[in-house]
Amino acid sequence: MLSLLTHIGRFTLRQLSEMGRMFLFLLAAIFLAFRPPAKIGLIIHHIKTIGVDSLSVVLLSGFFTGMVMGFQGYYSLRKFNAESWLGSAAALGLLRELGPVLSAFMVTGRTGSAMAAELGTMRATEQIDALYSMAINPIKYLVSPRIIAGLIAMPLLTAIFDVVGIYGAYLVGVGLLGVSSGSYFSGMESSVVFNDVYSGFMKSLSFGLIITWVCCYKGFHAPPMATGVSQATTESVVLSFVLILVWDYFLTSVML
């Protein structure tokens, strides 16, 4: 019994100290982001990596998510003779919930994992040590620009996901199932308010921070070996997914 308690205690302490290290890492990255010189070139490069390179997967997943919403929404609303509200249901679902969460998942899988693997490899091949030895702060050089880029790219990708998803649902609802085009858009126009867009925007902004923070932290502190890099990549994706869902719950409960 005592041994079990010891194990639980040790595990808890280890997790707490890991959380503390992660939080300090984030604070350092944010602090260094505001210290000159600004790494504009690097920020633009990472916006391209996170944003442009994830665009195809976000477009594809957004379109199919919208089409599924078209079918499922139509099926559910028909039971209440409310098919004309399909546009409203699809838009609210996408703007408030599915857009931010699913695009965050796509970016985590597409770019977050690559970020963790890249930094992990840099750790294993002493490139991070080389930056330290050249008196260059690797957190400022490698992490801060990625976090800023994540904050910029994630809301833009989410907006694209939302628009494509709404048109995906339109294609199915109006094109295949016969919902009137006018009622699709007028329902949307009458039910979507600024707070719905704002809530989705805030979620995507915080998910951008979570993905870049977690993936950079895991990669930056990867054990310097091949298995260390793969372990860091897996952990970064799993932890990002979990934190996205947990944070989504808190934000939803606050902003509903």
Binding site: T125, E126, Q127, A130, Y132, S133
Partner: peptide
């Protein structure tokens, strides 16, 4: 410390070039 490190040059085992 960063100022002190500026006085050093390091050749790492695998060269550690930024790839």
């Amino acid at each position: 410390l960063y100022a002190m490190r500026g006085r050093f040059g390091v050749l790492f085992q695998g060269a550690a070039l930024l790839d």
